[in-house]
């Protein structure tokens, strides 16, 4: 186990963060291309919108994994956490843009939907919570805000929860996938309150 852990940590040190950005951004043009060329089916707006939303949620969840991986398994991927967060925000923004511009197609109706339709209000609230996090995702802000920065970035927790609820709420009937997402999110948040590895082993 320790060998695997050390191997992962050694490899992680060699992977530059820009590689993570490029790798994780590739699906954006790829799925857009599929939508334009008809490979996402005859009604491509919805699948594209949903794909970007799903990727945003997946990246947020990946970001939530970083801390427990380190605390409970000793795997240190902390240098990727910021990239995952910024990427999640980027996909949430793409998701929002596709919805507003290609799906709803009217600013008036976008505003109406955000006010009148609770599942959209919730999604929008999640996005609004990510906004200050994206803005302060730079070294300057970390230095400037000091301990406040850590507190501020705990907003990820309510943001990802809102994302999970938004997903459950938007599907028709009972579907299993959004329930799995919410279970994973709740599990990862619960791990924050689990005794840490080091605390458990006697000194």
């Amino acid at each position: 186990m320790d060998r695997i852990k050390d191997q992962i940590n050694a490899n992680a040190r060699r992977v530059p963060t820009w590689a993570v950005y490029i790798l994780c951004l590739l699906p954006a043009p790829y799925f857009f291309y599929l939508a334009v060329t008809g490979s996402l089916g005859p009604d491509p707006v919805k699948p594209l919108e949903h794909k970007y939303g799903e990727l945003a949620l997946q990246l947020l969840i990946a970001g939530l994994c970083i801390t427990p991986l380190r605390q409970h398994l000793g795997i240190n991927l902390i240098k990727f956490r910021r990239s995952l967060g910024v990427l999640a925000f980027t996909y949430a923004a793409f998701h929002l843009l596709i919805w507003a511009v290609l799906d709803v197609q009217s600013l008036g109706r976008v505003i109406e939907d955000v006010i009148k339709r609770p599942y959209i209000t919730i999604g929008m609230a999640g996005f609004a919570l990510l906004l200050p996090l994206a803005i302060t995702s730079n070294n300057y802000s970390v230095r400037k805000l000091g301990p406040t920065w850590r507190k501020l970035h705990k907003l990820t927790y309510p943001a990802v929860l809102l994302g999970g609820v938004h997903y459950i709420w938007l599907v028709k009937g009972i579907q299993i996938e959004p329930l799995i997402y919410l279970a994973v999110i709740l599990g990862l948040l619960a791990l924050r309150y689990w005794p840490k590895r080091r605390a458990r082993s006697p000194a």
Partner: peptide
């Protein structure tokens, strides 16, 4: 309750 029915996307 969750979306407007005033308009539609024509499939295809």
């Amino acid at each position: 309750p969750r979306w407007s029915q005033a308009s539609e996307r024509a499939v295809g």
